[in-house]
């Protein structure tokens, strides 16, 4: 994988390289260079299989990480391309022209993370969340617990005690001056 990275750096400006396993590495790439790099990897380097495309929300850094995982079956290699994009008004170039299946991934990312992929087919169609009006739910600042508390009713009859607090109350709680 290091060899591949060395070859690629001669043609592309690449970011951090992380070797995760002998057959899996991650490379950070600038958003503007991704499409050309993917095309090169697909057509010249044998990474013909798009394994997945997903996002990671680094809320505290104000960034989304898009991970394009591609596979070279002949060489048994997986390569993850990490693209960091701004979280506000997140938008990224579509790759549905490289892999038809990418349109589905991009549709899901639009729905779940609110990332725009201009030109991607049926991008704005509801995918999983038909009729969803709240914030994109896979963003880190969407609180599932709070949502479920606000949306669903707790079944009555549930209560619990903290062992330490219960023991304090039973055994030695401050009873004031006695």
């Amino acid at each position: 994988m290091q060899q591949l990275y060395d070859t690629l750096t001669q043609r592309f400006s690449l970011g951090e390289f992380t070797r995760q396993r002998a057959d899996l590495a991650f490379i950070t790439v600038e958003a503007v260079r991704l499409h050309a790099l993917l095309r090169h990897l697909r057509d010249q380097e044998g990474f013909t299989h798009l394994v997945l495309l997903t996002a990671v929300d680094w809320l505290e850094d104000g960034q989304f990480q898009l991970t394009y995982l591609i596979n070279n079956r002949a060489k048994c290699q997986d390569l993850g391309l990490r693209v960091m994009i701004a979280r506000d008004n997140a938008s990224m170039e579509s790759i549905h022209d490289l892999w038809a299946a990418a349109a589905t991934y991009q549709r899901e990312l639009r729905e779940m993370f609110g990332i725009d992929f201009p030109g991607s087919p049926r991008l704005m169609d509801d995918f999983i969340l038909e009729g969803w009006n709240a914030a994109p739910p896979y963003r880190r600042d969407f609180d599932t617990l709070e949502y479920s508390r606000a949306t669903y009713r707790e079944r009555p009859g549930r209560e619990t005690r903290d062992p330490a607090a219960h023991m304090k109350q039973q055994l030695y709680g401050d009873k004031g001056d006695v």
Partner: peptide, 20 residues
């Protein structure tokens, strides 16, 4: 901190987990 992808061949094809 880290990220990885693990796959297996299930009855329908490639099943995998990407964990960060």
């Amino acid at each position: 901190r880290g990220e990885t992808y693990v796959r297996g061949e299930c009855s329908r094809g490639e099943y995998g987990y990407y964990l960060v």
